[in-house]
Nucleic acid binder design. Sequence first.
RNA 1: GGGCCGCUAGCUCAUCGGGUUAGAGCAGGGGACUUUUAAUCCCAAGGUGCCGGGUUCGAGUCCCGGGCGGCCUACCA
Length: 505
Amino acid sequence: MNETSGPEEAARPSDEAPIRSYEIPYRYDTTATTAQLQEKFVDLGDGEETGAVVSIAGRLMLKRDQGKIVFGVVQDGTGRIQIFAPTKTTPNFDEFAGLSLGDWIGVTGEVIKTRRGELSIRPSEWVMLAPTRRPFPDKWHGITDPDTRYRQRYVDLWVSEESNAALRNRSRIMSLTRRWLEERDFMEVETPIFHSIASGAMARPFSTHHNALDVDLYLRIAPELYLKRLTVGGFERVFEIGRVFRNEGMSTRHNPEFTMLELYWAYSDYNDIMELVEQLVSSLAMEICGSTTLVYDDKELDLSVPWKRASMLDLIEEHTGLVLSIDMDRDALAAIAVEYGVEVKEYYGTGKLILEIYEKTTETQLWGPVFVTDYPKEVSPLSRDHRTSPGLTERFEGIVAGRELCNAFSELVDPDEQLARFHDQEAERAAGDAEAMGMDLDYIRALEYGMPPTGGLGIGMDRLVMLLTGSTTIRDVVLFPTLRPEQVTGTPPEDEAQAAPPPVE
RNA sequence: GGGCCGCUAGCUCAUCGGGUUAGAGCAGGGGACUUUUAAUCCCAAGGUGCCGGGUUCGAGUCCCGGGCGGCCUACCA
């Protein structure tokens, strides 16, 4: 409805946009999605009519007012379809012509194909479902400012096809992962997010406070220790997909809160976990991408099973020619590390030095997929001693597309050994490592009741989604990535009393 | 946290090494058009050039400070 024909509130200044007074229904029945129609009528000839009357709903994304005919394009969650609205047959034609880009409408009408071959609905009825008060972004360019896209995802999802697809695929990946694990008798559990000791990973936590208990609590940096308590409790195959929080810098690969899959599998070891990971990831690639060979960041990646397996020390030798070992002289090793640009600290032992050399010289060269195995004990406080190589542990990380995708090990199940490792971590903390792992005595007590041999795994799900959706920044696969709070809240375009600014968090 | 780059209309972008009234497309308003595809055409409107100082006869443009963002880098998954 436009200014001249529609009722208008007298109080409104005349320079404002026309005020529409639609009856907004409480519900609306659709009989089809746009994708269903596009698929069903793909063979319809130009200018043909079908006799099929359907109802669809969505947002008006394009409008071409041709005078006596208005062409609209409505988008729903599945795709788009044109609305062909001639004066003669369209109810409230002037109002239809006056719709804004971004308005939600419901349309009932016959499915036809125009002379120019565009599948269309010719409305016999239509209804406003929600008018937009704010102008939609440029219909061609959309939103290019990333900050605006992340803050106003509700708009980005409409105007950015890639965002929309990646975020829908994220949901599918989570769902498929759950189903895949459940089919293998893994049971999903939920463990606390509030931890009194932030442990289970090397990271700095966020802290908070519980008033009634008057205790400081941390947001978890990993669910690991709780999940292993469940293994002690007899839950033989458990997993959790949940948010963890690490108080660190942000980047294209890091969001302060991110989603981790952790699973624990009693009676298995890290070799079993490697098989599980390669099978899970390759099957997800088939489901999402239709192939186990994909292109990421313009480089090819072959996820087909089996993935390469190689020990950290062998890989270092392969990339640098250096033959290192965990029982080398510490200072000699430190000297080599310095040569490669490692900032060596006093408390670094041979294990930490080897890891640093690996990260500097080798990890950056890996594209993968490859399982890097047998990490030094010094940097792996929760993994079990290697069965044949003293000083190393049965731990691996999966490197895929040049990034760490997962971290896993044969779990350390011996309480005395675990206690000793915690003590080592405390010593490192005292020596200046703010990320050293916290001592958890209840976890030791749990282990004292006996934990069976167990393989454990953590996968950064956001990175997995990046991989499978071809996204190069984590913010493209997180619906609402962490951002600095908006300083100036948006002022409503028309009338401040109509819509108060959103509260600043 | 460090380095580099950016911020002009609701959106996407112009404005030569300082120089008159900062332009255009889209969106929004008015008008024309019965098969358009980012429809097209005509008209009118739309700006605290991120903010605050400074230099200058004159600053969107140069300098300083601040804010916000991007990329790279660091830590991690």
